[in-house]
Simulated assay, not measured.
Amino acid sequence: MSRKVRADIHLDAIVHNYRLAKAQAPTTMAAAIVKANAYGHGAVPVARALANDADAFGVACIEEAMELREAGLRQPIILLEGFFDADELPLIAEHGFWPVLHSEHQVRWLEQFSSPARFPVWLKLDTGMHRLGVAPDQVESLVARLRQCEVVSEVLLMTHFARSDEPSLPMTRDQLGCFDRVAAQLGLGASLSNSAAVMAWPEAHRQWLRPGIMLYGATPFGESNPVADQLRAGMTLSSEIIAVREVPAGETVGYGATFSCDRTRRIGTVAMGYGDGYPRHARNGTPVLVEGVRTSLAGRVSMDMLTVDLTDIPQADIGSRVELWGQRLPVSEVAQWCDTIPYTLLTCLTPRVPRVYSD
């Protein structure tokens, strides 16, 4: 490997984070969410690392589910967007996938489908997110219809929170109230908790948790949280310095001349850019670690390279290791400097970056 870009995936940290999620509600089940290639970490290696712990896995679509089945994973796999066409139902029945239903037409397709196999379904209730889910006044009739479907072995209710990462705001409590009013008479198991709710809303834990971003060691919160503070980074993204130069006072660095040197600055060029998935919109001042010392971006990120300020790190030179985020630099902090969220940084990492797995 000549270009020194790499993403070290810390599988032991991901297992730790899953167990931390379960510890918040020890009597519940938890579906490890590994959609979008396990948030960029590699769905199959992550799922295999979790195989002895995970009660189920959650993916977005049947293609992601089949990847896990073909890799030998036997746990239940929840299709979080359900099925997009009735033609998927034979595969769902064959492999025992658990589809999420969010619309009446999916219920109708199930009623028209015949198979000797039976499988659970999760009915998604729209409690205020207004993205997917059936209206509260539809739930009772749809549950009754699902209970009559020959292929449905069990019905579970779920919803998704819009602002559970903002615990001081009332919306999550409002959504909880809506869910409980609908669910009160139905006697069904429930799943409400994404990562933020796992860590901050114990009243939402119910029968199934759905930890996602927390598995990978990133916090969804904008402030400290006692559970999130125990997470371990699942990925360390790093590269090396490939060039060093002295840039005089008054000169600029990079495209657009966005960084101007207030004095002579020692600038290092790093083999990492938006072609690798590092965000182009990272601002001057975005933190990085060089030889374990904190410094920052100096100039605009380009496709294959970015530049950092080495002025106060005299020991840094060509070949010095650069951590872009990871065990010593939280991806959530980097995301704030990029005016985005850690989800986008992790999932947008491109295939050009080798993933290197360790236990």
Rank of each mutant, 00 (worst) to 15 (best):
V288F: 11
V288W: 04
V288C: 11
L289I: 14
V290S: 03
E291L: 12
E291F: 03
E291M: 09
G292T: 12
G292V: 12
G292R: 05
V293D: 05
V293F: 00
T295C: 08
T295Q: 02
T295D: 03
T295N: 03
T295K: 01
S296F: 08
S296T: 00
L297I: 01
A298V: 02
A298L: 09
A298C: 15
A298W: 02
A298G: 06
A298M: 08
A298Q: 02
G299E: 11
G299S: 13
G299F: 11
R300F: 08
R300V: 10
V301K: 00
S302C: 08
S302N: 14
M303R: 12
M303F: 10
M303W: 11
D304Y: 08
D304I: 01
D304S: 12
M305R: 13
M305D: 13
M305G: 05
M305A: 13
T307C: 12
T307P: 01
V308I: 15
V308A: 12
V308N: 06
V308T: 12
V308S: 10
D309F: 04
D309I: 01
D309H: 02
L310H: 04
L310C: 10
T311D: 02
D312I: 00
D312G: 07
D312N: 14
D312W: 01
I313C: 11
I313L: 11
I313G: 11
P314A: 02
P314G: 04
P314V: 00
Q315H: 06
Q315F: 00
Q315R: 11
A316F: 00
A316W: 02
D317I: 09
I318C: 11
I318E: 06
I318A: 07
G319V: 12
G319E: 05
G319W: 11
G319M: 12
S320P: 13
S320Y: 00
V322H: 03
E323N: 02
L324I: 14
L324A: 14
L324H: 13
L324W: 15
W325N: 05
W325F: 15
W325I: 01
G326K: 01
G326C: 14
G326E: 10
Q327L: 08
Q327R: 06
Q327H: 01
R328A: 14
R328Y: 04
L329G: 12
L329F: 04
L329Q: 03
L329P: 05
P330L: 05
P330V: 07
P330N: 08
V331I: 12
V331W: 07
V331K: 06
S332W: 00
S332G: 14
S332R: 02
S332E: 13
E333I: 06
E333Y: 03
V334C: 10
V334G: 10
V334K: 00
V334W: 06
A335F: 10
A335L: 07
Q336P: 09
Q336I: 09
Q336G: 13
W337G: 07
W337I: 04
C338Y: 10
C338E: 03
